[in-house]
Simulated assay, not measured.
Amino acid sequence: MKKTISFTYYLAIAGLFGLTALPALAEETGTDANEGHQAISTADTGAPLPASITTLLDQGLKFHGTFNAPGDIQGYALSYDNEPVAAYIPSTSDHAIIGTLIDPQGNAIMESQLQTLVLGPMLEATWSAFEDTRFISEGNDDASNVVYTLTDPNCPYCNALWKNSRPLIEQGELQLRHVLVGVLSEDSFRKAAAILESNDPTKALETHELNFRDGGIRPVMPSEESRALLTRHAKLMREAGATGTPTSYYRDGEGNVQRINGAVSTDRLHDILGIE
């Protein structure tokens, strides 16, 4: 199945450095047409980086490794604001080109290299961070799928995802782990604290979501513990590259962490998680 390649972060980079970029119209096939081009981690690269790449690093990008691209082009796996960015330098030039490399058929290539060097490690780090923090769990511990989701009490899309996840939770197929944040407003922060400080946070979250249209749970003045936890969760959210709520994380059939942006329907959850 084909999927459209997002060009949002390339546009952001283009704006940052005064470049002009057009949205990529290419689509990526299920397999990378250039899987043979090896990705090399940061630890394996001993040679100095080209001046054009170090300039990008000086302006806020991070370097993750290199990979060989077709046509004697050297690829550099970078990130900006926790989003993968590919830069390419032809052997005949010292200039770096930022964008999506496509083949003659219009297919995006080199995406698996970015996944290996940039996005994969970032998502694994996010998963580990969520495992180590306090979350509110819904569903059986032996559920076949675990999903972490960043939930703001005042987010209508979080409420939609909460509703759409009920059938899978009731079937025992899903354990949904809410990492509460209060990023939309001070009221969100206080409602998140109210849920965390209740005698039964899982029940408090359920009651809040069921009464979301009427304002949900009554906000409280956060305790020092709640304030510290919610501040930490906001930091985790930024480090994870999540730009809104809900942002959710799950492991695919191969055990790799993947990200879901926004609310998705019950049927779409079935498809994403591979539930029959």
Rank of each mutant, 00 (worst) to 15 (best):
Y76N: 12
A108Y: 02
Y9W: 12
T266I: 06
S226V: 01
D72R: 11
M221V: 13
P167Q: 02
L49C: 07
T126G: 02
Y148F: 14
T243V: 13
C155W: 00
L180H: 07
A204V: 09
G241H: 04
P219Y: 01
L117W: 12
G99A: 12
G172T: 02
P153T: 01
P156C: 08
Q175P: 01
L210S: 14
V147T: 02
K235F: 13
L16R: 13
E206K: 11
R177S: 03
L123P: 03
P50W: 07
N82E: 13
L11G: 15
D72E: 14
H270Q: 13
N261R: 14
A194Q: 07
I102C: 09
T29M: 11
F17Q: 07
F189A: 00
E124F: 06
E224C: 00
Q105Y: 09
A160F: 10
R238V: 15
Q171Y: 00
S185M: 06
A21F: 14
I136Q: 09
R259K: 15
S128W: 02
M122Q: 15
R238M: 10
E28V: 14
G30P: 11
N256W: 04
R227K: 15
E111N: 14
R227E: 13
N34M: 11
P222T: 08
A228D: 13
Q74G: 06
S144G: 09
T55Y: 04
L176Q: 03
S144K: 12
D58M: 08
D271Y: 09
L11Y: 05
K203D: 13
G262V: 07
T100Q: 14
L150W: 07
I260Q: 03
E83C: 04
T66Y: 01
G30V: 14
D103I: 04
S185I: 02
Q38G: 06
V264Y: 10
N145P: 07
V147S: 09
D271W: 00
L119F: 09
P70V: 11
A39I: 07
G46W: 01
N107M: 01
S79G: 08
D44H: 09
Q59P: 02
E173Y: 01
H64S: 09
G46S: 11
R259S: 09
V147P: 06
P84G: 02
L49H: 01
N145H: 15
N159C: 05
L168A: 10
E254M: 08
V118E: 00
S79P: 04
I136W: 05
L273I: 08
L56N: 00
E138D: 13
R190T: 06
R134Y: 10
H64V: 06
P167M: 01
F130E: 02
K2F: 14
N68W: 04
E111G: 01
P90G: 13
G216D: 05
I5R: 06
I217M: 02
N164T: 07
D132N: 15
R134I: 12
F7Y: 12
E209Y: 13
E83D: 13
A87I: 05
D142M: 10
Y10E: 12
T126V: 14
L230S: 08
L236P: 04
A192S: 12
W127G: 03
T116Y: 06
A242S: 13
L117Y: 05
L49P: 05
H178Y: 11
N154I: 03
G71I: 04
L205I: 08
A69N: 07
T45V: 13
G15Q: 15
P104F: 06
V183C: 03
T92V: 05
